[in-house]
């Protein structure tokens, strides 16, 4: 059974004209456990919307999302929250670290809603991403690259089945981006997490053997209706 299975996914947003525009129209998409897939998508191709739907943050207007055997569209909101807490790791382009929290606390929050906080493991993860000495630093006291490492550590803190990455290196220079990607992929392999990464950056996409085009996948993007 596939780790992730999308079927006949449709998502609309209200259009400025008062109607609604289709941002996502995905007939079918599957991802196996442990797979690492990069989705190529230009700005406005619906890639963030897709990841939000996979994470259960957004609800599709129709279609089904199956993650680790859970049909998200049939679950209650709190059950979806639990699936997200246990199976999803998320790396955002802007990292979305919590500003008032130290690096260690950010990592602890990554595991807080599933297995619970484990300070020892949080320290190990920070050590794994190479910033053990920054555990008590606030995000504002870290460089962009260090913040990215904290974001990766936080994303794998709950031992996710699937790591979603939305332009994860968009704020990094080329060298740092490659380092971050390598770290991300290795870290996911260590916890047996699949990766679904979306990016428009050829350098990032080139790092993945399995690359797919979101434009091909999303029929709404083909007709240019994605927002």
């Amino acid at each position: 059974m596939a780790l992730l299975e999308l079927k006949d996914l449709l998502k609309h947003y209200p259009s400025p004209e008062g109607g609604r525009s289709t941002v996502l129209d995905v007939p079918e998409f599957t991802l196996q456990a442990g797979e690492q897939v990069a989705l190529e998508g230009a700005s406005g191709s619906g890639k963030t919307t897709l990841l939000h739907i996979v994470a259960g943050i957004l609800t599709p207007d129709s279609g089904s999302v199956s993650l680790a055997g859970n049909q998200l569209n049939t679950l209650s909101e709190s059950a979806v929250d639990r699936v997200r807490a246990e199976h999803i790791g998320y790396v955002f382009q802007t990292f979305n670290l919590l500003q008032g929290y130290t690096a260690l606390e950010n990592v602890l929050l990554g595991m807080a809603f599933s297995a619970g906080q484990d300070v020892g493991r949080a320290h190990q993860l920070l050590e794994r991403v190479g910033i053990a000495d920054k555990a008590n630093h606030l995000p504002s006291q870290l460089s962009v690259g260090q913040q990215q490492r904290v974001a990766i550590a936080r994303a794998i803190a709950n031992r996710p089945s699937l790591l979603l990455a939305d332009e994860p290196t968009g704020n990094l220079d080329a060298d740092m981006a490659q380092q971050a990607l390598t770290l991300l992929r290795e870290a996911c392999e260590e916890v047996d997490a699949a990766i679904l990464l979306v990016s428009h950056d050829p350098a990032v996409l080139g790092a993945f053997e399995d690359r797919r085009s979101l434009t091909e996948l999303n029929r709404a993007a083909k007709v240019g209706g994605a927002a």
């Binding site: 994470a55 997200r84 807490a85 999803i88 807080a112 809603f113």
Partner: peptide
């Protein structure tokens, strides 16, 4: 609000 949105994205329930 952004803090709560991040927490929710990490798996926090609304009740949390």
């Amino acid at each position: 609000r952004r803090e709560f949105a991040i927490l929710r994205a990490l798996g926090a329930r609304r009740s949390t």
